[in-house]
Design a protein around this nucleic acid. Structure first.
Length: 681
RNA sequence: GCGCCUGUAGCUCAGCUGGAUAGAGCAACGGAUUUCUAAUCCGUAGGUCGCAGGUUCGAAUCCUGCCAGGCGCGCCA
């Protein structure tokens, strides 16, 4: 039950009684700015006046007369100047709402609104290029996208998050070449990052891992367990494992306990069998841990080992093993001159490294138990080759929107008659990103999404129009797809300016130097980062004040909201100690709540479900962030003016009930924003 | 040149599917604590809603033009 909607329904009924022809009339029921105008106001009379040919005031009077007031919902009605109808809501309605809120589950049903009918919708967000660490715009997109998924779920959609990895095309080639250059530098060779490549530091770190790979490959080749080309592929894995275990053992832990533990498992090696397989990783961890590595470093190492195992199992290894076994240093094999001969796939390695690091970063972008943004799928462009081919064939076979010019293939016929169209296949025979994106969206539709929301960075806004045009074209070519105008929604997340000490932090894209998501989370924490990203409308430019986000004081809105929650939690503890066993008290007499601050709070709570609804429907999580600040303010005000636990048991119960409901809603709001609700601060 | 976003208090921004006297936070100034968390509360001050027209009962909100800032305009992704 939502009070505003109930009122709207009553008004519409009354309107229908007076003017049966106006049952489709659009009008607003809103909270008026001025408190003295009552709880809700409507512009119904002004909206109706023209089509009825009567003065607004006249219309208002008639409609009000047709209403049954007082009703369960509406206490009183008042008509004002041009034709406003102002209404006051009954206490009973608010009490009922308050009782309903107290039954909500903070992390689940809180503010739920049955609207989406379980329709499958997708939010694709971040989708950063796998060429480097996530930047700040990606961070903002991550916060917005994640919150939208939560919001849409809450209003009844089956919402899924998706991350699209552009692991194809020129940028990936450049990435591979850049990594190779870094690796060569590490090997003491002359090398240059190619034009348009990626000079950022992260590739140096990855190159170090490649070197570690090369070292392993070398040692493996030279070890006693050298395996020759006659070893059947099925036994390769065992050989690699054996090698890794011996690597671990040879380094030897210094701590006695670790040593014992390790020996116990190493002795197992004698009768080496498949059962040992699960142990190799722990053994290696044990070895590494004694060297004082952090958990993150160990995990990253393990990932590398895992990848080495996969790599070693792949075909190129045989070449490495045999060649380096004959005395060729592995790094030389890694750097085979001809691309086709290259034993080591720098592109793939770079992408795997970067994507897994992006994943790890995103997982840390949330202090909640469920962690960071939740992506149901990570779709790779490289996995869509068949779809892309198919879509291309369909378009060409259909022919209506295809034109060949200058040796390239163009898609035409979107909007204007004189539009030039866009290249989907270059004269060199390769498809463009545009085509693969069309195919990707078709693939989305084929997976059954009833609606799709793409969250893109500011550099993509020019892409919106042509994608929408492409969707129109595609529906004509493949009618079964059934893509309508509303199917594709694009949300542009605008740029973020980081501000430190009152000055903008300068970022140089060319030098590959920019502040990453990781930096921001590390500096201000995931909660503050998320809140700041969600505070503003996502399509407006954002100044992110790092100093402010770090402050644990009243200036910082995140703490303001979280503090309200912590305060209530601590109050609940106090209440329990004071003999209130069941919270919220089931027999609380809510009619005792009559102070101004109590009412302001109750009315604020009553607005929650609709705030959730509007935030979700308009794809504007910032509304919810603003709401949470407003509600926290109302609570702090209430708390300051009135003591909850007092001698007056009845009143205490009522206020405890109110505080409980507030806690529920605050928790719910924070949860939808992906921010933690601490019990104490 | 074309397109998109933005322009509201000293600063950062809400409000923009048209509603009544334009809001919040921060900063400034002045107050409040024998307390269930002062990470709080109360008050004061601060505005030609970029400019100019138009639409109408009514415009920060819609339309047009202009001004300013940002971004984008490849057979890159």
């Amino acid at each position: 039950m939502n009070i505003r909607q109930e009122i709207e329904r009553e008004l519409r009924e009354a309107l229908g009684r007076v003017y049966p022809s106006l049952d489709e009339l659009r009008f607003e029921v809103y909270r008026p700015r001025e408190k003295s105008f009552g709880d809700f106001a409507t512009n119904l009379a002004m909206a109706a006046s023209r089509s009825v040919g009567e003065k607004p005031l006249e219309v208002a009077r008639k409609v009000v007369e047709a209403m049954q007031v007082p009703s369960d919902m509406v206490e009183s009605v008042d008509v004002k100047k041009p034709g406003f109808i102002n209404m006051t809501v009954t206490r009973g309605a608010y009490m009922e709402k308050l009782r309903e809120i107290a039954t909500w589950d903070c992390d689940d049903s809180c503010g739920a609104f049955p609207f989406g009918q379980g329709k499958l919708v997708q939010v694709e967000y971040v989708s950063a290029n796998p060429t480097g660490p996530l930047n700040v715009v990606s961070a903002r997109a991550a916060a917005v996208g994640d919150s939208l998924v939560r919001l849409l779920k809450r209003i009844g959609f089956d919402a899924r998050g998706e991350f699209y990895v552009n692991d194809q095309g020129r940028q990936v080639e450049l990435l591979g070449l850049s990594l190779e250059a870094r690796f060569r530098e590490l090997m003491g060779q002359q090398a240059e990052i190619p034009e348009g490549g990626y000079p950022g530091r992260h590739l140096v770190e990855i190159a170090e891992k490649v070197k570690e790979f090369a070292d392993w490959a070398n040692r493996m080749a030279q070890s006693e367990m050298l395996f020759d080309e006659e070893i059947p592929v099925g036994e390769l894995d065992d050989c690699i494992l054996r090698f890794l275990v011996s690597e671990a053992a040879s380094k030897g832990p210094t701590d006695e306990n670790d040593k014992l533990w390790l020996e116990e498992h190493i002795s197992y090696r004698a009768e080496f069998d498949a059962e040992l397989r699960p142990f190799w990783a722990p053994i290696y961890v044990c070895d590494l841990s004694v060297k004082g590595l952090t958990y993150d470093e160990i995990m990253s190492k393990l990932t590398l080992i895992q990848r080495f195992r996969e790599f070693a199992l792949s075909r190129p290894l045989e070449r490495i093993a045999s060649k380096s076994g004959q005395g060729a240093p592995a790094e030389q094999v890694f750097l085979g001159e001809a691309v086709a001969n290259k034993a080591f796939d720098f592109e793939r390695f770079a992408i795997e490294e970067i994507v897994s690091r992006q994943k790890a970063t995103l997982e840390k972008f949330g202090a909640r138990p469920e962690g960071g943004p939740d992506f149901d799928e990570w779709v790779r462009e490289s996995s869509l080759r068949d779809v892309i081919d198919e879509v291309y064939d369909l378009l060409v076979r259909d022919g209506r929107f295809i034109e060949e010019r200058d040796g390239a293939v163009w898609l035409k016929g979107g909007a204007g008659a004189e539009d030039e169209g866009w290249v989907i296949r270059r004269s060199n025979g390769r498809y463009t990103y545009f085509l693969s994106d069309i195919a990707y969206h078709i693939y989305k539709r084929q997976r059954g999404f009833d609606g799709v929301i793409d969250i893109w960075g500011p550099d993509h806004h020019a892409h919106i129009a042509r994608m929408q045009a492409a969707m129109r074209i595609v529906t004509q070519v493949i009618p079964d797809l059934d893509i309508d105008e509303d199917w594709l929604n694009v949300l542009i997340v605008q740029q973020v300016n980081l501000v430190r000490e009152g000055k903008r932090v300068v970022m140089s894209k060319r030098a590959g130097e920019y502040v990453t998501l990781e930096d921001v989370v590390e500096e201000v924490g995931p909660d503050a980062a998320r809140f700041f990203f969600l505070m503003r409308r996502s399509n407006s430019h954002l100044d992110f004040d790092l100093d402010l986000a770090k402050k644990t004081s009243e200036e910082n809105p995140v703490f303001y909201v979280q503090y309200a929650h912590a305060r209530i939690s601590s109050m609940m503890n106090f209440a329990r100690e004071s003999g209130y066993e069941i919270i919220p008290p089931p027999d609380a007499d809510l009619s005792l709540l009559e102070k101004q601050e109590e009412w302001d709070l109750i009315k604020g709570l009553a607005d929650f479900d609709e705030t959730v609804f509007w935030s979700a429907i308009n794809l504007e999580p910032h509304r919810l962030a603003a709401y949470s600040m407003e509600l926290a303010a109302r609570f702090h005000r209430f708390y300051h003016h009135h003591r909850v636990i007092t001698e007056d048991r009845r009143l205490s119960e009522a206020r405890l009930f109110l505080a409980w409901a507030t806690r529920t809603v605050l928790r719910g709001a924070l949860s939808l924003l992906g921010i933690s609700a601490p019990e104490s601060m």
